[in-house]
Design a protein around this nucleic acid. Structure first.
Lengths: 131, 131
DNA sequence: TTGACTGTACTAGTTTACCTAGTACAATTG
DNA sequence: CAATTGTACTAGGTAAACTAGTACAGTCAA
């Protein structure tokens, strides 16, 4: 079973697709703290892309505090902890939601459809407090 | 008053920023059908960017059915009508929401904060049926 | 200790998207 | 008719993304 798929042609950079995928796997509970990601070389071979591209994705993940890497050992999921906080995180989320709704308007989505989709997503993503 | 602001340095292409801005202005009711957008040259001068970039943004908007353009006359907001429908539009919206929630998870956003932000956005965007 | 595996760090080059610059043309408007 | 509009070209610059290859240093198990 493939760890993930990437689309080299599409608009989004491959390394970003990998970053987003890992984040989503964590948020939906399919990846847990201390889980090990495939090695840079293994994943590169599986996805048929350059190892440098995988390395870059892993470096971004580590820079954001999502994972931690150790030479010779591998890359692992970090214990989740909010790095960004308060005003900043609310602003970022608001912008993402507004962009989605602006698109939805032009797609002809109804209010009911929007709420349904949001509720369904909330269930799948473990958006619960843990302090 | 400036029609909009663009950030040439930021990650998102300038032409895309213009497209998104116009869509949002419509979705929030600040632009209405038959309203005229600034001319390619005027807006280029105001934003201090190349007219070709504005032209490209307007062409994208027209291709998506958001506006219509007439030589010598200008570019106008089209009567809103869903071009994409049913399954496709739900899928697109779901993906946007899930991406926002996956990020929210790693930002440490609580379920309550997420719901508040969503409700607030729903109010601002006129996501209501009109048939 | 050895050897295989890991992440990391370089250099070099290609490709593509985005943007700028300039010119020209066709359709609309007053 | 004259001014304004969107549109269509060509040409070139810049930066990001990706590939390719090599090398190095830390980890781990045999």
């Amino acid at each position: 079973m493939a760890f993930l798929r990437v689309d080299p042609s599409g608009g989004e950079p491959v390394f970003q697709q990998i970053v987003d995928h890992v984040k989503r796997e964590i948020a939906t509970g399919r990846l847990h703290p201390e889980d090990r990601l495939p090695s840079v070389r293994d994943l590169a071979k599986e996805l048929v892309i350059n190892p440098n591209t995988i390395a870059r994705a892993y470096q971004v993940l580590e820079a954001e505090g999502v994972t931690y890497s150790r030479r010779g050992a591998g890359t692992f999921i970090a214990a989740t902890k909010p790095v960004v906080k308060g005003e900043e995180r609310r602003r970022r989320f608001r912008e993402a939601i507004e962009a989605a709704l602006a698109d939805a308007f032009h797609l002809g989505l109804s209010e009911e459809e929007a709420r349904k989709a949001f509720d369904a997503a909330m269930k799948r993503f473990r958006l619960v407090e843990e302090r």
